[in-house]
Amino acid sequence: MNTPVPVGPVPTPESGVEPGRGRVRFVLARLRLMWRSFRNGWGIFMDSRIGMLSLFTIIAFALMAAAHPILMAFVWDPATYDPVTGYSFDQVEQPAPPSWKHPLGTDPLGRDVLSQLLYSTRSEFVLGITAALVTVGIATFVGAVAAYYGRLLDAFFMRLADLIIALPAISLLIVLSALFHLNLFYLALIIGVLGGFGGTAIILKSQALSIKVKPFIEAARVAGGGHFHIIFVHIIPHLLPLALLYMMFTVTSAIFAEAVLSFLGLLDIRMSWGIMIHTANTGGYLLGGTRYWWLIVPAGASITLLCSAFYLAGRALDEVVNPRLRRRND
């Protein structure tokens, strides 16, 4: 009855199985699989016109951000064009309207608006992406852990999330920036933490709950997998697509929050789109209507465009992640 089928070599720690070959073949096969699923998702994303449009917008802004250091190094004279300390001496009065030398004019302090705009783009990206990564990192972990362990841990994190949602975010940020010197990095961190322990955690937890009750989790337990294995191998990979989506939305809210705080003059930042509008406002030019449009429109339009581009890219990604939203074209 109990005769075993003799099969395979018995491995001992020092048995002569080459460790390299199998692993390389494995990694290659896995990369091929990942490439295939990426191509599938990309195909769906490409079908979405809004998704492509927003992707191009984001790329355009990324190019703008990359252009600034190049222009400063090779084309623009730092004394005139530095976004913070520059001064355009050849203008009779500041702010000067757009001209060949200053395509978007100068601000009330004689600085080039285009240079400010390009310079700020980079910090907006850094801010948005840092905040998004922090949010998603925290929210994925909190969501998975709260859903998996349930009970007290779940209750704690969900009440914390309720608390954070109940607090008005912008007002809280205003108070925090009054108490501390907030630079770009701390702002990103705070926005990330608020988002990560707040609403995003609830959404990812609800997704994790629907994964946790799947029979393959029980199968993993029977196979001998511990809590760590189940959370990281079986639950979190199922949360990542949704997490990516919420990353996009967080970028939007981070850029928006920064613009508001800068406009109120509460941030310790060299230059940003919000500060550009803030400068126009403190000089009294915001009330001048359309006469001084170049002080407001470039920064305002950039905030609007980049925020909506990230948001719409998120919606298009939603379709990739969530098959139920897909239109059937076959």
Partner: peptide, 13 residues
């Protein structure tokens, strides 16, 4: 999965 979570053998095995 049962083999890998229990750390039995190497990849080739």
């Amino acid at each position: 999965e049962p083999l890998s979570v229990q750390g039995m053998g190497d990849v080739q095995y």
